[in-house]
Design a protein around this nucleic acid. Structure first.
Length: 256
DNA sequence: ATGTCCCCTTGGAGGGGA
């Protein structure tokens, strides 16, 4: 079983990249973030020739998530359970496929909107931890993949790439990420590469890619029974060197 | 280096988000 996540920074700009990447890597499930289009505008039919079926949860202009699958799946959630009715931001999709429950998430960045913007991020993380906790209590074979917008430790960003007050590294953000780990989820990439320098994002600005000023903010978290099946987990760093790339690269996880 | 890319509104540049 091969799972992947990729913040594509607009699917309409990156559909060709995704198609080529799917053909080459053939994950069973690929979660996408920041599709930046409404649900009906997602070009899902464009991946059918490779055997992939799509399900998108979009909104106008911002955010938006989707899943592409070459295995049969059913949609469990189109929003993160526990969020208020009025929250229209498209940030979560959850499916059942291949004997596991897999959620694709686009966690709020938290650097815009002042105190309210950061509070929104923390509230969203609280809801995520609660949801994961409920599923783990049921021994659900759960995988949560996506753009977490959190560097879990100081080893997860290049020195100088972020300020100490950035919402991606602030204490409360990290505490909530750790809550997922303490609940029993395994950070797949870090579990297999405990000492490596691993990044999944390089800003478009300031020559961040050329200077390797990256961040590790795209993660795959696995429930215990899935963690025991872990074979490999790593970002596809080469994708950042392609023409007109996303600022994020895909992260791939392979399970026995 | 206020450095880039993508979205929107809108009929030409500017604002917001990342």
């Amino acid at each position: 079983m091969r799972l992947a996540t990729w913040n594509v920074n607009s699917i309409r700009q990156r559909a060709g990249h995704v198609h080529r990447w799917l053909a080459r890597n053939q994950p069973d499930l690929l979660f996408l973030q920041e599709i930046k289009c409404e649900t009906d505008a997602f070009p899902g039919a464009g991946f059918a020739d490779l055997g992939y079926r799509a399900h998108a949860v979009g909104q106008k202009a911002y955010n938006g998530v989707a899943v592409l699958a070459r295995v049969p799946f059913t949609v469990r959630e189109e929003a993160l359970p526990g969020r208020p009715e009025g929250d229209a931001q498209a940030r979560y999709v959850e499916v059942e496929a291949g004997g596991l429950v897999a959620g694709g998430l686009y966690l709020p960045n938290g650097n815009s909107g002042g105190d309210d913007g950061y509070a929104y991020k923390l509230a969203w993380m609280d809801a995520l931890a609660a949801h994961a906790g409920r599923l783990l209590d049921l021994d659900t074979p759960l995988a949560l993949l996506g753009d977490y917008n959190v560097c879990p430790t100081d080893a997860d960003f290049a020195p100088g790439a972020l300020g100490p007050d950035d919402a991606l590294v602030r204490g409360p953000s990290r505490a909530r990420f750790r809550r997922l780990i303490h609940a029993g989820m395994t950070d797949a990439v870090r579990a297999l590469h405990p000492d490596a320098t691993v990044y999944t994002f390089w800003d478009y600005q300031g020559g961040a890619w050329q200077r390797d000023l990256g961040l590790r903010i795209d993660h795959a978290l696995l429930a215990p029974d899935l963690a025991e099946r872990l074979l490999s987990a790593a970002p596809d760093r080469a994708e950042r060197a392609e023409a007109q790339p996303s600022d994020h690269v895909p992260v791939i996880v392979e399970l026995r």
